[in-house]
Amino acid sequence: MSLLYKNVKQLVFDIDIFIDTVEQGVLVFKEGVINYLNGEKASFADKIERINRLEASADKLQRKIDDEFYRHSILPQNASDIEGMLDKVDEIIDIAKDNLYQFDDELPFIPKELINDYIRLVDTSAESALSVFPAARSFFRDPLKVKEMLAKVYFYEKEADKISRSIKRRLFHEMKDLHLSQKIHLRYFALHIETVSDKAESLADLLSILALKMSI
């Protein structure tokens, strides 16, 4: 009974802030990639800095939440599941940050005719991640609603897959003037952007299982 109501309130607040931070991270990632594609270097640099700060803050919050869970043995039967779920939420901002840094480090050359495709890809991939956060929040308050909220995540993830595949096909089938090295480089960037939606899908899978577990 060491867990006082005040502590619970703080923990609930921390979890909400954590999810908000990751959500902001995804938005920054999306804007950052668009900035890069449009050649807006200053804005891109700003996004890099922002996602770095957001990721650090998410990590700090996650550690704090973990500590609280262990110290007060909160939800002892579901603690490891919830911590696993929060881990997966954190993975989204981690991968978003890594991807943005890869743009910064590797400076991929994106042909003009592919820019729109990449914008569509980053938009869809980010949308998939953004759709999973309301479900993650709902998991704590209304687990039964989680499942229906996840439909959007799966839809956008599949869309992102399709766009990514079409980019790869265009690269290797239509763009003969590009070097193979360039094609492979661009192919990897399509893959990097796509991983954000893959992470969102993996979180969605976990959420639907946990929600089912909680409702039994």
Partner: peptide, 10 residues
């Protein structure tokens, strides 16, 4: 009531 899991735990 849709109480938050942590409040419910408390």
């Amino acid at each position: 009531t849709k109480i938050h899991l942590l409040y419910r735990d408390s």
